[in-house]
Amino acid sequence: MPCYFYILFSDSKGKFYIGHTCDNLSERLRKHNSQHKGFTGGVGDWTIVYSEEYREKTRAYQREREVKAWKGRKRIERLIGSASSRHPG
């Protein structure tokens, strides 16, 4: 089963959320958009703006930790933008 490193964005919060999962990515997004307590709860407008697929959970988690350590929105935006330019449309 594939695992994913992903970045979500909420227009209403104007913030990114960085995570990883070995669940179905669409189902994970549905959970983030549900009414729950926590950083992503209660907003309902999270969208997946970037993802990478991995064979092992440890690699997806390592990538999450790596990107979270950047501590810079600009670097995250560059990562998302580079993926968009490689995959137009």
Rank of each mutant, 00 (worst) to 15 (best):
S85V: 13
H87D: 05
E27I: 12
K68E: 03
S84Y: 11
S84I: 11
V49C: 09
N33P: 12
F16R: 06
K13S: 02
M1D: 15
K13P: 00
R78D: 11
G38V: 13
K15H: 12
F16I: 02
Q62I: 05
T40H: 02
K37F: 10
H20P: 05
D11H: 12
S10N: 05
E52G: 08
S12T: 14
P88D: 06
S12F: 06
G41N: 04
S26E: 14
S34F: 04
Y54T: 06
Y61A: 07
L8H: 07
K57N: 08
Y54H: 15
R78Q: 14
K15Q: 15
R28M: 00
Y17K: 15
E56A: 13
S82C: 06
I18Y: 00
L8W: 08
E53H: 06
P2T: 14
A60C: 09
P88T: 08
K57T: 08
E66L: 14
G44F: 06
P88Q: 09
W70N: 04
A60M: 05
S26I: 01
I76E: 00
R59E: 14
N24R: 13
C22S: 09
S26L: 10
R78F: 09
R28E: 01
F9W: 15
K15N: 13
V43Q: 02
Y50P: 01
E56Y: 14
R65T: 05
G38L: 09
K74E: 12
A69V: 05
L29D: 01
H87F: 06
L8P: 07
W70M: 13
R28K: 12
M1A: 14
E27G: 13
E52I: 10
K31M: 09
S85A: 10
L25I: 11
G89K: 08
H87V: 07
G81L: 07
S10C: 03
E56S: 09
L79V: 00
K71A: 06
C3W: 00
R86D: 02
G72W: 05
S84G: 12
L25Q: 01
K31N: 09
S51C: 01
W70E: 02
E77W: 05
E66Y: 15
L8A: 11
G81R: 12
E66C: 06
D23E: 13
K74N: 13
V67P: 01
R75F: 03
C3E: 03
F9M: 03
P88L: 08
S82F: 12
S51R: 01
I7F: 05
V49A: 08
V49K: 11
F39Q: 04
Y54F: 15
R75M: 06
T40D: 04
C3P: 04
